[in-house]
Amino acid sequence: MLIHIGFGNIVNSSKIIAIVSPESAPVKRMVQSAREKGIAIDATQGRKTKSVLVMENSQVVLSALLPETIAGRVQGSAQMQEESSVEGTDERQ
């Protein structure tokens, strides 16, 4: 399921390992290391980074949305997918 992470940027929610705040020193080091390796994706459109998404393939995605906002969207899309699968089973019966 794809989710919107701000400013027209979309990621595959099934590939997200963690959504963290960029304030701590370990996360800052992780982001800097990812930038140096070329595996950081800056989706902030020049705004302040408010969340860091750690992806399955070790890529790091920077977003200007709060972690709570993105987590809510992930949970909402998971609930929608679950509801649609339940509705699909009801139709088959």
Score class of each variant (00 low, 15 high):
residue 70 I to G: 13
residue 35 R to F: 10
residue 7 F to N: 07
residue 50 K to C: 02
residue 17 I to H: 14
residue 6 G to H: 00
residue 16 I to A: 15
residue 35 R to V: 11
residue 15 K to R: 14
residue 76 G to N: 12
residue 54 V to R: 04
residue 44 T to M: 01
residue 6 G to I: 02
residue 47 R to G: 00
residue 43 A to Y: 04
residue 39 I to S: 10
residue 56 E to S: 13
residue 19 I to K: 13
residue 48 K to W: 00
residue 77 S to Q: 14
residue 21 S to C: 13
residue 50 K to G: 02
residue 33 S to T: 13
residue 42 D to V: 03
residue 54 V to I: 14
residue 63 S to N: 03
residue 16 I to S: 11
residue 89 T to F: 01
residue 9 N to T: 02
residue 92 R to F: 07
residue 40 A to G: 03
residue 61 V to L: 05
residue 45 Q to F: 05
residue 16 I to T: 14
residue 25 A to I: 15
residue 86 V to E: 11
residue 40 A to I: 06
residue 29 R to L: 13
residue 74 V to T: 15
residue 33 S to C: 02
residue 3 I to D: 05
residue 6 G to T: 01
residue 60 V to S: 02
residue 25 A to P: 10
residue 46 G to V: 05
residue 90 D to L: 07
residue 46 G to E: 10
residue 24 S to A: 15
residue 37 K to C: 04
residue 44 T to Y: 02
residue 77 S to K: 14
residue 74 V to N: 09
residue 22 P to E: 14
residue 46 G to C: 10
residue 11 V to S: 06
residue 39 I to E: 08
residue 87 E to T: 06
residue 26 P to G: 13
residue 46 G to W: 08
residue 87 E to G: 01
residue 44 T to S: 01
residue 13 S to T: 14
residue 48 K to I: 06
residue 8 G to W: 05
residue 44 T to K: 01
residue 81 Q to M: 10
residue 80 M to I: 03
residue 76 G to E: 12
residue 74 V to L: 15
residue 75 Q to L: 14
residue 1 M to R: 09
residue 14 S to F: 03
residue 3 I to F: 05
residue 93 Q to I: 05
residue 30 M to H: 13
residue 85 S to W: 10
residue 29 R to Q: 11
residue 78 A to C: 07
residue 58 S to Q: 11
residue 59 Q to V: 08
residue 91 E to V: 02
residue 9 N to E: 09
residue 37 K to P: 02
residue 70 I to W: 07
residue 52 V to G: 12
residue 59 Q to H: 12
residue 50 K to P: 00
residue 2 L to D: 08
residue 48 K to A: 08
residue 19 I to W: 13
residue 51 S to E: 07
residue 2 L to Q: 12
residue 72 G to P: 07
residue 40 A to K: 02
residue 7 F to R: 01
residue 78 A to D: 14
residue 62 L to P: 02
residue 73 R to I: 08
residue 9 N to K: 07
residue 18 A to R: 15
residue 90 D to C: 02
residue 42 D to E: 06
residue 6 G to C: 04
residue 31 V to P: 10
residue 5 I to H: 05
residue 18 A to Q: 15
residue 71 A to V: 15
residue 78 A to R: 15
residue 12 N to F: 08
